[in-house]
């Protein structure tokens, strides 16, 4: 019995959407979405603006709630009770396009705040781990700075580190480089690339097709609230199966 449950767990995807529907007033933003993401996969979600990419991502950690269908994350079907659990939420890291960091706290406090409050780490523990990770992303000298004193790229790297310090099992990225100047995009993607190689489960909404091609295991292409195509990155870019994906790729790759 136990053994059977164990094998089932391993086979079970870490994120599963079944017939998920979501409306914002008259707007039907997610239409019968089905999705399976296995642990350790890097999934890039792409598609035209307004296609429901961000909503899909935000459904994974309960920032948006589906109106019908079921979403199962880390073996738990999302409902009010599951989402009330601080530990559950803390296991899903999230990086926004911007405004992720708390502007009234130094970088160090941004990083150690939730580990101490939510995980009950001591100050020394949290700060030790924060220093170590900041060092790794090249921000050791910014430890005492406020977010307003950092460049956009530095802020995003710090935001990624902050999320990682919660020891998440899943990392969500909602257009993490879309608000950055071109020269800063690379430094953020480099950190994400390292993270992907470390085996983290990542769902990334992005327009960076180079990153998708190189790092993603799976590309999810959305249009008008539907998942139009789900394919391994290599085949998605070389021969997309649908006309809509072909048109989209044509636009983003040759602009």
């Amino acid at each position: 019995m136990t053994a059977a449950a164990g094998t089932k767990d391993e086979a079970e995807p870490i994120i599963r959407f079944r017939s998920v529907d979501k409306h914002f007033g008259p707007l039907h933003v997610l239409k019968g979405v089905d999705l399976d993401v296995r642990a350790g996969a890097v999934v890039v979600v792409c598609g035209p603006s307004g296609s429901g990419k961000s909503t899909l991502l935000r459904c994974i950690n309960g920032l948006e709630r589906a109106q019908s269908g079921t979403i199962t994350v880390m073996g738990r079907t999302l409902d009010d009770r599951v989402l009330r659990s601080a530990d559950f939420r803390a296991e899903i890291g999230l990086v926004f396009q911007r405004f992720s960091l708390y502007p009234h706290m130094t970088v160090l406090r941004n990083l150690t705040f939730a580990p101490r409050k939510v995980r009950g780490e001591t100050r020394a523990q949290a700060e030790g781990r924060a220093r170590e990770l900041l060092e790794r992303v090249g921000l050791a000298d910014k430890i005492g700075a406020y977010p307003g004193e950092l460049s956009g790229g530095q802020q995003q790297r710090a935001a990624i580190v902050r999320a990682l310090l919660m020891n998440p099992r899943i990392m969500l990225f909602d257009e993490p480089t879309s608000a950055l100047d071109p020269e800063m995009i690379r430094e953020v993607l480099d950190v994400m690339r390292d993270l992907a190689r470390s085996g983290m489960t990542m769902i990334v909404v992005t327009h960076e097709m180079g990153f998708a091609r190189e790092v993603a295991d799976l590309v999810v292409f959305m249009d008008q609230g539907e998942i139009v195509e789900t394919a391994p990155a290599a085949s998605f870019f070389s021969h997309p199966a649908t006309e809509r994906a072909r048109k989209f790729l044509d636009k983003v790759l040759h602009h």
């Binding site: 950690n61 920032l63 601080a86 530990d87 939420r89 803390a90 899903i92 890291g93 999230l94 926004f96 911007r98 405004f99 992720s100 708390y102 705040f113 939730a114 409050k117 939510v118 995980r119 902050r162 999320a163 919660m166």
Partner: peptide
């Protein structure tokens, strides 16, 4: 994003 980030952190 501020309250969303904090809530997401648990």
């Amino acid at each position: 994003e501020q309250s969303e980030a904090a809530w997401s952190q648990g």
